[in-house]
């Protein structure tokens, strides 16, 4: 039920943004279409059902976007610094990171965020272990890599997804 609700709200907001107007007819057609489509396509899927809907998770969602934006900007200056230097200062390697998150969607968002943060790129996920390509390896110890790469995002995602 929650799955269906979030899916149709998502579809409806994309529809309204695409049309760029809040005419009555557009709203009615969009509402109809998004409910029918979410009924058709969310029958056996439960990707959104692990989201907690509460004021706290809403607040953490916006905090999460803010943190991600800062990390993306930091990542860009990092890449710019590496690219401009005459000899490229890199020491690449593949390290493992362990995650505490259970829900598949939370893991997906964590993996995408890791890709957008400075110097790291998610290569693969096997159950609880993420393989991460690190452009400048500082340590290969599991605890340290987890703390350095994933901890800042996990804190927020744990609240949003139980």
């Amino acid at each position: 039920m929650k799955n269906l609700f979030i899916f149709s709200v998502l579809l409806f907001s994309v529809w309204v943004l695409l049309n760029a107007s809040i005419d009555k007819s557009i709203l009615i057609v969009g509402g109809f279409l998004s409910i029918i489509l979410s009924l058709l396509f969310s029958k056996n899927r439960s990707i959104f059902s692990s989201i907690k809907i509460s004021p706290k998770s809403f607040l953490y969602f916006f905090l999460y976007i803010f943190v991600l934006l800062i990390e993306v900007i930091k990542a860009n200056f990092d890449v710019a610094r590496r690219v401009i230097m005459p000899t490229i200062p890199i020491n690449p390697g593949v390290v493992e990171v362990k995650t505490k998150l259970k829900s598949p969607v939370a893991r997906l968002i964590l993996a995408n965020s890791i890709t957008l943060t400075p110097g790291t790129l998610t290569v693969d996920i096997k159950d609880e272990t993420l393989l991460v390509h690190w452009i400048d390896v500082k340590s290969t110890d599991l605890e340290k890599t987890t703390k350095y790469i994933a901890a800042s995002f996990e804190k927020y995602l744990e609240v949003i997804y139980g």
């Binding site: 993306v72 990542a75 990092d78 590496r82 390509h133 452009i135």
Partner: peptide, 8 residues
């Protein structure tokens, strides 16, 4: 790595 981040 360079391609994804900077272009995003």
């Amino acid at each position: 790595q360079a391609g994804t981040k900077a272009t995003t």
